[in-house]
C-alpha cells in the first residue's frame, strides 16, 4: 500500500484538486475557494516532493520507485497550477 501511495501520490493530489474544483464550480463558483484549494494542493505536492527526496534508493526497485514518484509529483505540481488557471480566469 505504501509503495502505491508513493507511486501515485502526485496523481492522487491532482485528482483531489480536479474533483474539488468540479464541486466548487457546480455548487458555489468562487475564485477564493479555487485559490485556497489550489494552494493546499500545491502545498501537498511540495510536501510530498520533500518526502520523496528522503526516500531510500539503495536497491534498483527503491531507486526506480523514487524517480517515478518524483517525476509524478513534479508533473502534478504543473498540472494542478494549470488546472487552476481557467477556474481563476473564469471565476
Amino acid at each position: 500500500m505504501r509503495t502505491w501511495l508513493i507511486l501515485l501520490g502526485g496523481m492522487l493530489v491532482w485528482a483531489l484538486h480536479f474533483f474539488g474544483l468540479y464541486a466548487i464550480a457546480e455548487i458555489a463558483p468562487h475564485r477564493a475557494a479555487v485559490a485556497a484549494l489550489t494552494l493546499v494542493c500545491l502545498g501537498a505536492d511540495v510536501w510530498f516532493l520533500r518526502i520523496i527526496s528522503r526516500l531510500r534508493r539503495d536497491d534498483p526497485f527503491a531507486a526506480w520507485r523514487r524517480s517515478v514518484a518524483g517525476a509524478g509529483a513534479g508533473l502534478s505540481l504543473l498540472a494542478v497550477a494549470w488546472q487552476a488557471l481557467p477556474a481563476l480566469m473564469a471565476g
Binding site: 507511486l7 501515485l8 496523481m11 491532482w14 485528482a15 480536479f18 474533483f19 474544483l21 468540479y22 466548487i24 464550480a25 457546480e26 463558483p29 509524478g72 508533473l75 498540472a79 488546472q83 481557467p86 477556474a87 480566469m89 473564469a90 471565476g91
Partner: peptide
C-alpha cells in the same frame, strides 16, 4: 500511462461544451 488513466477521468464534459455548461466548468 498512469497519468493518462487519471486525467482521462477529468475530460468527460468536453463532449458537452455546446450544452451550455457554466463558464468555470467549461474552462477547466
Amino acid at each position: 500511462m498512469v497519468a493518462t488513466g487519471f486525467i482521462s477521468f477529468g475530460v468527460w464534459a468536453h463532449h458537452m461544451f455546446a450544452t451550455g455548461l457554466p463558464p468555470m466548468t467549461a474552462g477547466f
